[in-house]
Design a protein around this nucleic acid. Structure first.
Lengths: 251, 251
DNA sequence: AAGTGGTCTAGACCACTAC
DNA sequence: TAGTGGTCTAGACCACTTA
C-alpha cells in the first residue's frame, strides 16, 4: 500500500535492474556508441526517475561487465575495443617469459562458405547459413605463432569485404564495433590438442599434422547473442596461453 | 578543516578500503574460519566505526573476490571450498559435449623433493626448499583423463602425510582450508602442448610421449601469496579445457 | 570555476530465513 | 517474531579533469 516511491517496481525485479536494462537497450539501439560519453549520473537519475545511488548501482554492474568505463572528472564512456586497452582481455597468448607483445596480423585467406552443423549450433543459426570465413596469421616478435580462422554470419556483417579487413586501423573487435555496431563483451573458449593443417604448418614453420594448441572461441555481443566463431591454432614451443581465475577481469 | 567524520581516513586511501583490509586481516588470522558466519553488517559497522553503506561496500568487494558469500536472511559467510559449490571454478575440464562430471581421484605417488629453480621462482621461495610432491589420477566417466602433479612447500603444510591425502573427504582445496587454514582464492594458469611421461601414458592409456594439454598452475591464498604449484596433463581426445571471459566469476 | 564521478552518511522499508 | 542481508533515498563533501 505504500505510495512513497515515485514509480512502482516493474515486473522482473528491482529498480536498478530496470535502469540497467533500459541502459542496455539504449546501448543496443546505439543511442550511445562505442567510445562516446554517456549523460552524467545526475541527468540519468532524473531521466529514469531514481536517486543517484540507485543509478550508480546500475552503472556499477555495467562497468563490472566491461560495457561501460568510468573516468572520474570526465564522465562515463561506452567501452571501446582499442589496441592499447582491453586488447589482452581477449588475446591470451604470451611468450613463455611472460612478455606480451601486440601481434602483427596478416590476412591470408578470405572466402564465403555455408555453415557446418557444429558451427551453426554454436552461433545459434541454421545449418547452411552463409558465412564469411577468413584466416589471419599473427606474428609475435617477428615470427608467426598464431593462426586464427574466423567465421561470421553474413546477416550480422552486411557488406563485409576483404579490403575492409585489410584496411582496418585497429583491432578486429574495434572494427566490428565501428563498422557494424557489434560490441563483443564476452567469449567462451574451449582448448584442446589440434593438428596443424597444410597451410598452417607452412606459416607456423612446423611439420604438417604437428600438434598445436587449438582454441575454439564463440564471441558474444552486448545482448549475449553469439556473433563470431573462431578456431585458433597456436604453436606453443615458445609461447603459451594464459588463463586462470582472477578477480579483476582484465590484465 | 572539517571535523565532521568520526575518524580520519588513514594512509593508503578510503574508509571502505581500510575496512576491507581489516576484514582480510581478520580472515588471515582465522578470527573467522572457512564456512563460518561473520558478524552482522550492523555489528561490523559499529566495530569499524563506519556507516552500514560503507561497510557493505567493503563486503561487496570481498564477495566479488569469492572470499565471502552473502545469504539474505542468514548472514555473510567465509567462502568454503566444497565439492558441490565453487568446485568447477577451479576444475576446468569438461567432456566435449559439455558434460561436467566430478572426477574420481586416485593418489598414485607421494614423495618429498627439493624445489627446482623454475618452481621455486613461481612459488616465491628459495631454490632447493623442501616440497611435498604428489600425483593424482583423475577419472571422468570411469576413464582416467587428467593427471595432476602437485607441489607444496613443506613449511606451509606442516605435518602433511600421504594418508591425510588419501583420507580427505572433500576437495583438495577444502582440505588445505580445514587442515592448514589456507584459503585458495585465485589461480594463474598457462597452457601449452606437453608430452605424456611413461607413467602418465599408462594411466591415460596413450602412447608415451604423445601430446597432451599441459596446464601449469600457481594457486594463491587470500593474501595473494603463492601456496601451490601444479602441472596438469589432460588427454583431450574426448575432453577439453574450458576458459573464456565471463562476467560472473563462477560457473 | 564548473562539472564530473567517488565516497560516505543515516535512515526507511522490503525480502528472506529460522524459530 | 526477530534478525539477517537487499534496495533505495537525498544529500554532503571529496578528488579529478578541463577550461
Amino acid at each position: 500500500m505504500s505510495t512513497v516511491t515515485a514509480m512502482p517496481i516493474g515486473p522482473g525485479g528491482t529498480r536498478y535492474k530496470e535502469v540497467k536494462e533500459a541502459m542496455l537497450a539504449a546501448l543496443t539501439e546505439q543511442e550511445w556508441k562505442g567510445g562516446e560519453v554517456i549523460p552524467s549520473e545526475k541527468k540519468l537519475a532524473d531521466r529514469f526517475g531514481v536517486s543517484i545511488g540507485t543509478l550508480r548501482k546500475a552503472i556499477d554492474e555495467l562497468c563490472a561487465e566491461n560495457i561501460l568505463i568510468r573516468h572520474q572528472g570526465l564522465g562515463t564512456f561506452v567501452a571501446q575495443h582499442r589496441r592499447d586497452r582491453h586488447f589482452f582481455r581477449f588475446f591470451r597468448v604470451a611468450r613463455r617469459d611472460g612478455d606480451r607483445a601486440y601481434p602483427v596480423v596478416t590476412l591470408v585467406n578470405f572466402k564465403r562458405a555455408k555453415s557446418a552443423p557444429a558451427v551453426a549450433a554454436r552461433l545459434g543459426i541454421n545449418d547452411g547459413t552463409r558465412l564469411f570465413v577468413f584466416t589471419n596469421a599473427l606474428a609475435l616478435h617477428d615470427k608467426v605463432v598464431v593462426i586464427d580462422t574466423v567465421m561470421l554470419p553474413e546477416t550480422k556483417f552486411p557488406g563485409l569485404t576483404e579490403s575492409m579487413l585489410r584496411g582496418r586501423p585497429n583491432t578486429l573487435y574495434n572494427f566490428y564495433q565501428d563498422a557494424f555496431g557489434i560490441n563483443v563483451t564476452s567469449t567462451d573458449e574451449r582448448l584442446r590438442i589440434g593438428r596443424a593443417s597444410e597451410l598452417e604448418s607452412k606459416l607456423l614453420e612446423i611439420e604438417a599434422g604437428a600438434p598445436v594448441l587449438e582454441v575454439e572461441r564463440v564471441a558474444y555481443s552486448i545482448n549475449q547473442k553469439p556473433v563470431e566463431y573462431r578456431i585458433t591454432h597456436i604453436n606453443t614451443e615458445e609461447y603459451e596461453y594464459i588463463a586462470g581465475t582472477s578477480k579483476s577481469s582484465d590484465i
